[in-house]
Simulated scan of single mutants.
Amino acid sequence: MGVAATVENYLKTKQVEFTLLEHEYCEGSYNTARVANIDDHCLAKGVLLRDEDFHYTLCVLPTRNKILRHTLNQIFDRHMELVEEEELNEIFRDCAEGAIPALGEAYGLDVIWDEELLGVEEIYIEAGDHRHLIRLKQPDFVQLMENKLRDHFSAERNHHSKLPKKYIRQEYEL
């Protein structure tokens, strides 16, 4: 599949250059960083939340981090909750299940991104399948996030698995 059509069209419209990194099939952002051999601080994952009025917001954060939901609730002054898998499939129709690109604007979503992503030179995001990542230079990523809400709403999580990385399957978004 490669890059989801919505994402590719969005990047072309924004005139942002990117490269594609192919990797072994895997699910879960933490596992993706490992098999793609990139620092999990550089892989930006998208986590879709909604409030009690069904207003959606895509949270973009480093894959090594977890969302501090209490902090997000304070930022928005709303109760935010994780979106169900069926809803994700409806919103990200041209993406494989669970391969959410961290480009919410491409899908008409509001976005908040964690300012911790400012500390890396290159940012990788899901392309829409489980075998490809989009590589963006920091200035291009910041351009795409221009006029999007930015704050610090995540914290590093600990991964304690002792299994060889090819057997690990962890995906805890919150």
Rank of each mutant, 00 (worst) to 15 (best):
K165T: 14
N147P: 04
L68S: 00
D77R: 07
V16L: 12
D94R: 05
F153A: 07
L82I: 06
S154K: 03
E27F: 01
D94S: 02
R150M: 11
E87T: 15
A99H: 09
P139A: 07
N73Y: 02
I67M: 09
S154Y: 01
C42V: 03
Q170E: 03
Y30D: 09
Y167T: 04
P164A: 02
R34M: 15
R135N: 11
E22A: 05
V35Y: 14
L21V: 15
P62T: 02
I134D: 10
A33F: 04
L174R: 15
A44K: 13
L61E: 03
R78D: 05
C95Q: 14
V60Q: 13
Q15T: 12
K45G: 06
E126S: 08
A102F: 11
V111K: 09
T19L: 04
L149V: 12
H160S: 08
I125S: 13
L68K: 02
H130C: 01
K66W: 00
D151V: 03
E121Q: 10
D40A: 03
L72M: 11
F18D: 08
V16N: 13
I75L: 06
E52V: 11
I168F: 01
G108K: 10
E87I: 13
C59Y: 04
Y56L: 02
E116F: 00
E22C: 01
P139E: 14
D114K: 05
Y172T: 01
I168Q: 06
L163D: 12
L11W: 10
V60P: 14
Q143V: 08
K66S: 01
E81M: 07
E27N: 08
M1K: 15
N89Q: 14
P164K: 04
R64P: 01
I67P: 08
I100N: 04
H159L: 01
E27P: 05
D94E: 05
E87C: 10
T63M: 03
F54L: 12
N73F: 05
L82A: 08
E24A: 10
E81Q: 13
G119W: 01
K45C: 04
Q170L: 06
I75D: 02
R150E: 13
A5M: 14
L82K: 09
A106H: 06
D129M: 04
L144K: 10
P62M: 03
R93L: 07
A33C: 12
L163G: 03
P139V: 09
K66N: 00
V83G: 10
K137P: 03
E105R: 12
W113Q: 07
T71P: 07
R69W: 00
G128N: 13
E97L: 12
K148H: 11
I91H: 04
I91R: 09
K166Y: 10
I38R: 08
R150S: 15
H132P: 01
A106M: 04
V16K: 15
P62S: 05
T6D: 12
V120D: 00
A106S: 07
E27Y: 05
E105H: 06
T63W: 00
T57P: 02
C42Y: 00
E126N: 14
V47N: 08
S29Y: 15
H132D: 03
V35F: 07
E122Y: 02
A44I: 13
W113G: 06
E173Y: 09
E52P: 06
V16Q: 14
R135H: 07
H132G: 01
D94T: 07
E171M: 05
E84A: 15
V60G: 07
L109H: 13
